[in-house]
Design a protein around this nucleic acid. Structure first.
Length: 402
DNA sequence: GTCAATTCACATGAAAGAGACCACGGTCTAGTG
DNA sequence: CTAGACCGTGGTCTCTTTCATGTGAATTGACGA
């Protein structure tokens, strides 16, 4: 493109009528005015938390539901209202929201407590203090606050899976040392069986109340999409059947509204980039592929070198021969690859874990099988599209400088 | 042919180490009045 | 005299290694029909 052409391009870009008028309405951080199809749940949660407005400690609450079914959205909505009401009537009430999935923020006991303390205005160094010291600081901060404190732990299952349920126990125990304040916990979890695995002591004190969010069905998803699409897109930017298709895609995956909205947004971006005036059903298909592909590539690029080498080993074996792949084969080749690129090879024990991690990420499929006399091992198959294999290999080769 | 024991090749668990990062308090050093 | 540099100690956190134990079915070998 010549310089003149570039200028023209930008001119045209600015002049072109965008199909978006407010893209933010499709992003997950967006808070809509109303939350459709969640009236019952909101009411239930509100009535459980309402005692906080009378300076009584609300019951601890556990909320379950699949990804993207509005748990977080509802809770944030309620806590905002709750805080606003409390402020209006001068009631000392605070809600601390914490997403336990965030790496480097809330994935260890120390960090969770430190982060909570920070939100109460205490400065806590990122490391260096003993954990019980941080607990003490937190307790003092809570006590000094004088009032009801609601702690919302989003995706607690992730937290507990990583560091155990002790932290929940400690948090519930803090109340015992408080006279001026009270803490209530609200846990949000995707995992329905999570509670069963908890220590009985923790379990009984935490699940004083439970609320289950059912997934959205296709019709409900459609309504949500229509509501957001009206805000996000300009008039007539969406073809007939697009919303329906979007909803159907997401309903297939346990009614994930977040994914649904992402699909629509990406489809919009694709349409816009291609200079189309309308989003069509084809754009949805394209968006679905793109989302999946992008996710995979980001995972690939952000893996540590060792995992990349292990994965590269798996990819190589699977393209060389069509037989099933076992841990031993992967490890042998992995060692050679390490040798070639000057990486210190890890032990088989660690590679075994890395393979399990790759399985968790959905890049490969792993099944533990017993081959009788010939031992027990993992049977590994690739769970990605054959078409994306060369691209994956290329990324790994670049990253490992092979 | 039947059945229990054996065996393989890892899986899986637990504990502990290495190295990075950080806070804190004490000591040293150089600059300032 | 004091601010800042520097050190040692003690803490967390992540990634690994080391050591130990577990596991499920093909294979083996003894036994009886």
């Amino acid at each position: 493109m010549s310089q003149k052409g570039l200028s023209d391009f930008f001119e045209k870009y600015i002049g072109a009528k965008s199909i978006f008028i407010n893209k933010a309405a499709l992003q997950s951080a967006y808070h809509p005015q109303t939350i459709p199809h969640r009236d019952m749940e909101i009411e239930a949660i509100a009535s459980i938390l309402a005692p906080a407005l009378k300076q009584e400690k609300p019951s601890n609450l556990f909320i379950y539901g699949k990804a993207g079914c509005g748990k977080t959205l509802c809770l944030r909505h309620i806590s905002r209202e709750l805080e606003a009401n409390a402020a209006r009537h001068n009631i000392p009430l605070k809600v601390l929201y914490m997403n336990c999935k965030l790496k480097k923020v809330a994935d260890t006991e120390y960090r969770v407590i430190a982060q909570l303390s920070r939100e109460l205005g205490k400065a806590i160094p990122p490391t260096g203090l003993p954990t019980d010291e941080v607990y003490k600081i937190f307790e003092q901060a809570v006590e000094a606050d004088k009032g009801i404190l609601l702690i919302v732990l989003d995706e607690v299952d992730q937290l507990v899976k990583k560091i155990g349920d002790e932290i929940l126990y400690s948090l519930t125990r803090i109340n015992e040392g408080l006279s001026q304040s009270k803490i209530s916990l609200v846990g949000i979890s995707n995992d329905m069986v999570f509670l069963a695995a908890l220590d009985p002591r923790v379990k009984s004190s935490l699940s004083e109340e439970e609320i289950i969010f059912p997934p959205y069905n296709a019709i409900q998803l459609q309504e949500i999409l229509y509501q957001r699409a009206r805000l996000a897109f300009s008039e007539g930017a969406i073809d007939h059947g697009v919303i329906e298709k979007c909803a159907a895609y997401a309903a297939r995956e346990h009614g994930d509204a977040r994914r649904c909205l992402e699909l629509l947004r990406v489809a919009g971006e694709i349409a816009e980039r291609a200079n189309h005036q309308r989003i069509t059903i084809d754009h949805i298909d394209e968006a679905d592929e793109k989302i999946e592909r992008d996710r995979l590539m980001i995972i690939l690029k952000t893996q540590p070198k060792q995992s990349q080498a292990a994965l590269y080993s798996i990819l190589t074996i699977s393209s060389d021969k069509k037989t099933t792949i076992f841990t031993g084969d992967v490890y042998e080749l992995y060692k050679k690859i390490c040798d070639r690129i000057g990486l210190r090879p890890l032990t088989q024990r660690r590679i075994s874990d890395i393979i399990a991690e790759l399985d968790m990420l959905g890049i490969i499929n792993v099944k533990v099988i017993s081959k009788g006399r010939y031992g027990r091992t993992r049977e590994i198959t690739l769970s990605v599209d054959q078409a994306t294999l060369p691209r994956m290999r290329k990324i790994l080769e670049e990253s490992l400088s092979l």
